[in-house]
Simulated assay, not measured.
Amino acid sequence: MKQQYSFFSTYELAYLAMTVATCTVGRLLFQFLPNIQPMTAIFLIITLQLGLFRGLLINILSVLITNIYLGMGVWTIAQILSFTVIICLMALFSRVFPIFRQSLFLQVLFSIFAGFLYGFIMACVDVTIYGLPQFWPYYLSGFSFDLLHAIGNGGFYLVLNPIFKQLFLKTVKKKEV
Results as ranks from 00 to 15, higher is better:
G155W: 01
F93Y: 13
F164N: 01
E12G: 14
G119D: 01
G26P: 00
V25H: 07
F83S: 04
M122G: 02
T40Y: 03
W75S: 03
S6W: 15
F168Y: 10
W75T: 01
G119Q: 01
Y138Q: 03
A91R: 08
L92P: 06
G73H: 04
L33Q: 06
M1E: 13
T24M: 04
A150C: 07
N59A: 08
G51N: 09
Q102E: 15
T47Q: 04
C88A: 15
Q107P: 04
F93Q: 06
S103I: 09
Y15F: 15
F156Y: 06
M90C: 15
I68D: 03
F135A: 09
M72T: 04
Q107T: 09
F116M: 10
F156R: 00
L106A: 13
L160H: 02
Y11D: 12
L92M: 14
L50Q: 10
G154K: 01
L16G: 04
V108K: 06
F93N: 06
Q107E: 09
A41L: 04
L148W: 10
G26R: 00
F110C: 04
L13R: 14
S94W: 00
M18P: 00
I80G: 02
M39N: 09
I121W: 04
T128M: 14
L57F: 14
I60P: 09
F93R: 09
I45S: 03
I46V: 15
G55F: 07
P98N: 02
I65W: 04
L33I: 11
Q49N: 08
M1G: 15
I58K: 03
L13Q: 13
F105I: 15
T40K: 03
N153P: 10
T66M: 07
Q3C: 06
F143M: 11
I87F: 09
Y118R: 03
A114N: 08
Q49L: 15
K170Y: 14
F105Q: 13
L44D: 05
A21Y: 05
P162D: 04
I45P: 00
F145T: 00
L117E: 05
R95Y: 15
Y69P: 00
I163N: 05
V74L: 13
M122I: 14
L89A: 12
S9N: 10
L64M: 10
L89T: 08
I87R: 10
N35W: 03
F32D: 07
A41S: 15
V172Y: 00
S62V: 05
F168M: 02
F120P: 00
A41H: 06
T66R: 05
I77T: 09
I46C: 03
L104W: 09
S141F: 08
T128P: 02
Q37N: 10
N35S: 11
Q166N: 09
M90K: 07
L106G: 07
Y15W: 12
L29C: 11
N59L: 02
L109S: 14
P137Y: 10
D146K: 01
Q107I: 05
F105S: 12
L92V: 12
L61Y: 00
M18S: 13
S111F: 02
V74E: 13
L13I: 07
T171P: 01
V177K: 13
L52H: 12
Q37W: 03
R54A: 02
F143V: 14
P98F: 05
L109I: 13
L109V: 13
I99K: 15
N35F: 05
Q4I: 13
T66Y: 06
A114L: 10
A78G: 06
F116C: 09
I68T: 10
L140T: 11
L64W: 03
L147W: 05
C88L: 14
L104A: 11
I86G: 05
F135Y: 13
L148F: 12
